[in-house]
Design a protein around this nucleic acid. Structure first.
Length: 125
DNA sequence: TGCGTGACGTTTG
DNA sequence: GCAAACGCCACGC
């Protein structure tokens, strides 16, 4: 967390950006999913979907973030289907009641739609 | 100093 | 549904 809570590029370090994304990800409730772009948006980093993806790769394991609740905006799991991560993600999602068919989730049903003012209140970057 | 590469996204055809 | 063309930008080389 930098000294300034505003997305002023000149004052935000990459470490700050990653922390913002991780903090926001922690707020995604079980049984719901968010897209990479949505996660970045909610973290105050509009248009930074790729950064959200990067943040997941770099996420510290001990933080136990719900990385599996992040999928592509098209509702598909974005990890190569031949990878073990693909299977793990599908299992974790199903374990909390999310229906996954052919690596795909129905966004209209499972996408998290947080109350923005409430989220802003909870987050303390 | 480029330049290619990404667990990405939107628009257009 | 699919593919191409952009847009985005941190990072490694």
């Amino acid at each position: 967390m930098g000294p300034y809570p505003i997305t002023n590029k000149a004052l935000m370090t990459q470490a700050d950006n990653l922390k913002r994304i991780w903090s926001t990800l922690e707020k995604v409730p079980a049984g719901k999913v968010v897209s990479y772009g949505q996660l970045a948006d909610l973290a105050g980093l509009p248009g930074r979907a790729r950064l959200a993806a990067r943040a997941l790769r770099l996420a510290p394991a001990e933080r136990a973030l719900p990385w599996f609740r992040v999928i592509g905006a098209n509702g598909r799991i974005s990890i190569p289907k031949e990878s073990s991560g693909y299977q793990r993600q599908m299992e974790r999602l199903r374990a909390e009641g999310v229906m996954v068919n052919n690596g795909r989730v129905k966004m209209s049903e499972y996408q998290w739609q947080p109350d923005l003012s409430e989220l802003l209140w909870q987050l303390n970057f």
